[in-house]
Design a protein around this nucleic acid. Structure first.
Lengths: 115, 115
DNA sequence: ATAAAGTACAACCAAATGGTTGTACAAGAG
DNA sequence: CTCTTGTACAACCATTTGGTTGTACTTTAT
């Protein structure tokens, strides 16, 4: 398993890619099953090229993989990338928790050293 | 506790806000302790107004709350908003899992109805 | 062989983003 | 009261984003 450390730019790309409803929907669809770009294009009220660009953004972020099959490109969602995003958000939780721990430590200190 | 359902636009704003390294750093700092906007501004190599805008983006997404204290505005990170983002990403995990379940069901069916 | 389907890619455009400077004003310090 | 600090906000600018149309190329279908 590749547990590659994410650079700031990697994280930027992942969150930016997720900051669009169409792209999030593409991720959902392609997590359920492999879908070709043209199938995706049929699902939305925009040009093929626009959908193609959305897929490119997702692929650039690693949220989706594209694989040729005959003349079409099959797109599948990459759950591992989503999990990386989750782990990233977990860091915030940890940071917050460490603050609470420090506050607790202060309170404990107050109790052991009253006045 | 307000378990308000997030609209697409809400989710857009949250992820968009997280798609910038400076803003993520602001969230980290303000999760650790309340920090004034000018204190934040001193931490980065950009103008006060730029940092002010970043804080505004974070506030608009709900990732941060701003509260007046005298002449300064104290900023604190909102962990609950981050948890909402995490829960949102969890949906993808669930969707993916449901696909696996369906595949398992098909395999089970094949076993019970051979040929 | 020709037509149609699926894709890639470039050029273009409007709107949003991320930065700047400048001005104005409220709150605290001297 | 005056000066400084902290903030708000507008105007401006370059770049990015999210869409479009158009052209070209490969693969499949007829």
């Amino acid at each position: 398993m590749v547990v590659q450390e994410l650079t700031d730019e990697d994280v930027n790309r992942i969150f930016r890619a997720l900051a669009d409803a169409t792209r999030r929907d593409i991720v959902r669809r392609t997590l359920v099953a492999e879908v070709s770009v043209s199938q995706l294009a049929n699902a939305y009220d925009m040009s093929f090229a626009a959908v193609q660009k959305h897929v490119a953004v997702l692929e650039g972020a690693g949220l989706v993989k594209k694989q040729p099959r005959g003349r079409e490109r099959m797109v599948r969602g990459d759950l591992e990338c989503i999990r990386q995003a989750q782990r990233f958000l977990d860091q915030f939780e940890q940071i917050w928790r460490s603050r609470i721990d420090r506050i607790d430590a202060l309170l404990a200190q107050d109790e052991t050293t009253p006045n």
